[in-house]
């Protein structure tokens, strides 16, 4: 038996560079597969068993192994996902990429009794035609990973007797993490459903049915609702339009009392002419040949406040929403109030 252990260790030393090379290839293959599937994982970790660890394993269980190929965890990859459901998605991709040795693979999620909590993870023993040795792929969520590390750190499985109250605490914590994991997953699924529904409503044009929030606003911006106005303004001075993020207009529109996407669509429809008049007045006689894509929504909001009779206070409030509270917003409001007197839409 000592001879076979020595032979295994010798083979290990010879093949170590091959394992390291394959470790890199595996990580690359998994990363590419996840990317292609649009699956975002928290981490992909890998390691090749150290000589000392292998020596220890052979000392303890040497009789089980006759050659290096009998040992399935010389090389291991661990995929850590954000969500419980993603563990199964990862598993399905791993099944497609490699040949799974089902006899030696373990779904630890199914091993626990219904009334116990603890280590949950999916372990596959895999092989691939281009590499003569089997390897292990572990799949678990971030919280399962946290549990496994804590568990290891506390020496829970070290064989040293631990008072039952600590074991109970550990078990309670495992249960809590399992619950949190499932709740995160549930929220993730529900959010994805909500986003799909919002996207469908936005695409179908039922904008008044879509409440104004971060997700719906993002979907709405994909329709480029301010493009026509920006282009009309830019054309006046042959200006280029610099695309800039418009996310902060969500706070502005909400602050102005808009409830749904239909309210913004109405703003664009009813106030574009007035917004164009503001832009004409301000930059029509200048040689400014660059505007930001935020100019359209900005001038729409100015037109809206002015037409609604918000006056100086309303304008300052709008710029406070947009730029943060500042006294300089008051001087901009003053200037706009002076200009407003000359704007055709204010005199209709």
């Amino acid at each position: 038996m000592v001879n076979s252990a020595n032979a295994i260790l010798k083979e290990y030393k010879e093949k170590l560079p091959l394992f390291h090379e394959q470790e890199k290839i595996l990580k690359q293959e998994l990363t590419a597969a996840f990317e292609k599937a649009g699956l975002h994982v928290a981490a992909i970790e890998s390691r090749v068993k150290s000589y000392e660890s292998l020596e220890g394993k052979l000392r303890l269980k040497g009789s089980k192994y006759h050659s290096l190929a009998d040992i399935t965890d010389i090389m291991g990859v661990r995929v850590i996902t954000y969500y419980v459901d993603d563990v199964d998605r990862v598993a399905s991709l791993v099944e497609r990429l490699f040949t799974v040795d089902w006899e030696n693979s373990v779904d630890k999620r199914k091993l626990l009794e219904i009334d116990s909590f603890g280590y949950l993870s999916l372990h596959y023993i895999c092989s691939t035609p281009s590499f003569p040795y089997r390897f292990e792929v572990q799949m678990r969520t971030l919280l399962q990973h946290a549990w496994a590390n804590m568990d290891h750190d506390t020496g829970y499985k070290s064989g040293v007797e631990i008072p039952s109250r600590y074991l109970r605490s550990m078990s309670r914590m495992a249960g809590l993490l399992e619950l949190v994991d499932e709740e995160f997953s549930k929220i993730h699924v529900e959010l994805a459903d909500y986003r799909r529904r919002v996207q469908a409503l936005v695409a179908s044009g039922n904008l008044s049915d879509v409440p104004l929030d971060g997700d719906s606003f993002r979907s709405y911006l994909e329709l480029k609702p301010f493009d026509a106005l920006n282009k009309r303004i830019a054309k006046m001075n042959q200006a280029e339009i610099q695309e800039v993020p418009l996310g902060q207009y969500l706070t502005v529109f909400k602050g102005l009392g808009f409830q749904n996407l239909g309210d913004i669509a109405d703003l664009v429809k009813e106030y574009s002419e007035a917004a164009f008049q503001i832009a004409c007045y301000q930059i029509g006689l200048t040689d400014l040949d660059i505007i930001a894509s935020s100019l359209g929504p900005q001038d729409l909001c100015i037109a809206y406040v002015l037409k609604k009779g918000g006056g100086r206070v309303g304008l300052k409030y709008f710029f406070d929403l947009l730029n943060g509270q500042s006294e300089s917003n008051a001087s901009i409001a003053d200037m706009l109030m002076e200009q407003a007197a000359d704007l055709p839409f204010m005199n209709q």
């Binding site: 930059i283 505007i291 894509s293 935020s294 900005q298 901009i332």
Partner: peptide, 16 residues
Amino acid sequence: IRTVFMMTGFLNLFEI
């Protein structure tokens, strides 16, 4: 300059 920033939609792009 603040007015130029405002007229072009640049005002909210920077921390001022």
